[in-house]
Every structure is written in structure tokens, then in C-alpha cells.
Write a protein that binds this DNA or RNA. Structure first.
Lengths: 246, 246
DNA sequence: AACGACAGTTGCAAATAATGCAATCCCACA
DNA sequence: TGTGGGATTGCATTATTTGCAACTGTCGTT
């Protein structure tokens, strides 16, 4: 592990919360400001940060240049985009695309709802492995041994009264999901949000992503959300076909 | 300057070109693979990279989570988005939003043309200071002394026969731009692309961004591109109003 | 004009972290 | 079982990082 790299990355993360002065950054790390300056200079040279006329540091354009490459590398995202936009337009609800990578489920695209009340999320953030529909869909597609290994490592933090609270319960739920080909989050992640999700498959036949529709209670009841399933499944089938699924 | 941080960032940049093995990354830096491993472990812990089942490294979701914050911090981007989408739909051409930060002009948003032939660009990339319309608009709005200082530091690389080749010529062009309130790139950046650009102002009255329309020759002549000016100016005026410009 | 405060920056030696070697681990294949 | 290939770990050496002290520049006040 590299302490110096960890420090630099920590500075980047801090700037995600807003501009900072050199003194603030040095305090954050508990180092002398000279040390912070040198770290920032390296980040600035590579365009990961820039410094404005008032010597305030900001996240730089090089960061999002690299991030846009990262998103392009996730080819499924480009294939899914028009379909997700159409689903979002047809339902008026928030539509997410998520993928399983590096042991976590992450949101890789998002189309926002027209409604004022919506689920908080952001591209790049992790989805809870035990309490989100997209995670259930992706985990359900893992080989059983790997599924069990992943589930055994989950920390079952209860977020709502509906949250799944143990590995046995989740494994049973994943069996159900694997059988029916879709998943729900019935107020398990947020008390006022219900979601349905379904897998997207590629030429290998494996689930490479999951699409979900998220709906707040004030907009539609859980039963209403389930009525969106046919549209969701139609969309994931179309994306899968474009992705070369058999 | 920090050698270790620079190395880590170089690894990130390399992954922008695609997945890599540990050996490849070590070769890239000219270090022992143990060293490369430790750098990657730090990057992985902070979610900037992930490693797949075949031990191949990829850019991670933490990178684009942070980038999405960076883009949100550029508030003008959100304000401009609906207007730019409308301009893109109305003209069918590629529309860019650029800003001047850290001594460079960078693309911070983009709406692609419907046409097959278009100008290559990517969010986060730098725009040439001497050969793009957005840069001319942003530089033209700097105080004269700063404008001169910036221009004197430019390396006038000729990209096309039309490219401006010296500071005096560019300063004269910027005077013109400051007077007329818009700029052109008449095949100065690419031989087959013409652009027009205009500034977006905020409550301070300063140009905080520039909007451009880029059109390939095969689609429309330079004269036709100039005919897009009224729509462009209408758009930048609307964005500026939303941004609180006086 | 001079002074003080504050923030950023530079040079250098000491301190610390990074580095690479050698050994070990793990997996796949014959 | 043995072999090959790639990843990983422990340790001593080496190189880099670190923080101190001094300096620079800007701004505000007297």
C-alpha cells in the first residue's frame, strides 16, 4: 500500500465536496502545508485539479476526461442509452443502469424522473448488495458458489423495516429472482421508494448489467410499480438483443 | 512534486486506453511489479480502479463518482443543459460548452450532432487557445493585461493553413471578438470544420463559459454556419439570463 | 512609505516510506 | 506429482518524502 498515493486520492475526494485552500487540505491530512502543496502540484500537473486566481483548489477537467473514457469502456452503457431514455420517457420514472464490478454493484447510468421526489443516487455510487433490486438481479446471476461467497461477506445493515437482515433470507430471495428473472426492492432501501429491476445479457448469456425503475410512494403504490414490469422486461430484452444475447 | 503520485496518476491515465495486467503496468513505469502492485492496491482501495476475475485492471466507479461531482460543481453546466439540448435539436449540429479554468479552455459539456462526420472532442479535453472559437470568446473577455499575458505564452502550432500563427494576429482577432460578441473558427482547428461561438455570462457580467456550434464542411459551408449565429446568440442570452447576468 | 499579517513557495538535511529482491502462494495443465 | 506463470508477502536497502526555516508576494493598516 502506498501512503503517499492514498493521501493524494484523499485530497481529490475532499475536493468533491467543494473548493479548498492549501491550509484546509494540509489540515485534512494532518501534514505540513509544504507536503500538501507538493501533492497538489502533482495532481495539478496531471490536470486532476486546478487552482483558481484566489489559490483555491478545484477538481480539474483531466478527471472528467478520464471518467468519460471509463464510461465509454463500459460498452453496455452506450448500447442501453437509447432504450433507457425511451423507458424514462414512457414511464416518467427514474431509470438506472447498474453493473457488478470489483465485488460491488455500481450505478453506471441514470435517467432522472420528472417528479420532485425521487431516490437519491449518482453515477459511480455503490448500490447496497442486500437492499436494492439491481443488486439482487446481478447477484442472482452469479454461479451459486460465488453467490454464497459474496452474500456471506455482506454486512446486513437495516435501512428500513423491510430490509433483508440475514444471508439465508437474501439467498432465498436470490433463488426467487433467478427463477422469475426480475427483482423488487419493496421499501427495503428507502421507506418511500419501490423499485423493480431486470437483467441485461450479452453474447455470453450472462447478466452484464441491470436496469431498474424507481418510484416514490407518493407517486405510485407498490402494486402500481409492479405494473411497470412488462415495459421493463421489454426494454431489457431489447438491450440484450442489441448486446448480442442468444 | 511527488514522484509516487505522478506514477499512480500515470497508471490511471493508461487505463483510460483500456484494461491492463500488472506486468503491463509495471513495464509502463519501468518499475518492479511489486511496486506497481502496491500503487494499484492503493488505487483499488479508493475505488479508482477495480480488478476483474482475470486480474486485469480497469478504471473504477469511484473515478466517475468523483467526476460527476466535479461536473455538478460547474453550476453553469446544469443551467445551460436544457438550452444546449434544444440548440442541438434545432440545428442538428454538435454543440459544446467550454470554460476557462486553470489557464486552459476545457470542454465541460457536449451534445453530439446527428451526422456521421463530426469534430472529435470529449468532455474534459482542452480546446486550443489559438484555433478554437470557444477559446477566442473566453480569452476576449479577459482583462487586456491578462489577455496579453496568456497570449504571449501560447505555442502557435499550425494545424491548418487557416490557423492563426502569432500573438499579434490573435490579439487583433480577440479585439474583434470582444467588439462583436462572438467568434468563429474558420477551418483553423480542423480543415473540414467551421465553428461559431458566443459567451455565457453570470451575475458578475463576466464570461463564465462559451457555447459553440461545430459544423463539418460536407454538411454546410462556412457561410451557412454563420447563418446559425442568431440561434446561437439567442441561446447564450437565455442561458446568461438564467445564470443571473445583468 | 513602512510594517505586520497571511498565504504560498523554495532549499536542505533528517526521517520515513517506497522499492526491489527472494521466497512463497495459488492456479491450471500435462 | 511437477512445471510454469502470475500474484503476493516480508525484509533490508535505497530513494523519496517530509517538515523546518527562510524567503517571496500581496494586502490592509498606520
Amino acid at each position: 500500500m502506498s501512503q503517499t498515493v492514498t493521501r493524494a486520492l484523499r485530497l481529490l475526494t475532499e475536493l468533491g465536496d467543494g473548493e479548498r485552500s492549501l491550509d484546509q487540505l494540509a489540515d485534512l491530512l494532518g501534514v505540513h502545508k509544504t507536503t500538501a502543496l507538493r501533492l497538489m502540484q502533482s495532481l495539478e500537473d496531471e490536470r486532476f485539479v486546478y487552482r483558481d486566481a484566489d489559490y483555491r483548489y478545484h477538481l480539474g477537467a483531466g478527471l472528467f476526461a478520464l471518467a468519460s473514457l471509463a464510461m465509454e469502456q463500459r460498452g453496455i452503457r452506450g448500447i442501453a442509452a437509447p432504450h433507457l431514455a425511451a423507458l424514462n420517457a414512457a414511464t416518467g420514472q427514474t431509470v438506472h443502469l447498474a453493473a457488478y464490478e470489483g465485488g460491488e454493484v455500481v450505478y453506471i447510468d441514470k435517467y432522472d424522473s420528472r417528479h420532485k421526489v425521487r431516490m437519491y443516487s449518482r453515477i459511480g455510487l455503490k448500490a447496497g448488495l442486500h437492499n436494492t433490486a439491481v443488486a439482487k438481479v446481478l447477484l442472482a446471476d452469479l454461479p451459486p458458489a460465488e453467490r454464497r461467497r459474496v452474500v456471506s461477506g455482506i454486512e446486513f445493515t437495516p435501512r428500513t423495516p423491510n430490509t433483508i437482515t440475514g444471508p439465508q433470507q437474501l439467498l432465498a430471495e436470490l433463488e426467487t429472482v433467478a427463477g422469475q428473472g426480475w427483482a423488487v426492492d419493496h421499501a427495503e432501501h428507502e421507506t418511500f421508494i419501490n423499485c423493480v429491476a431486470a437483467p441485461v445479457r450479452d453474447a455470453s448469456g450472462r447478466a452484464v448489467a441491470a436496469v431498474s425503475i424507481s418510484v416514490p410512494d407518493v407517486v405510485a403504490s407498490y402494486e402500481r410499480v409492479l405494473e411497470l414490469l412488462p415495459q421493463l422486461l421489454e426494454t431489457t430484452r431489447a438491450i440484450s438483443a442489441d448486446a448480442g444475447a442468444p
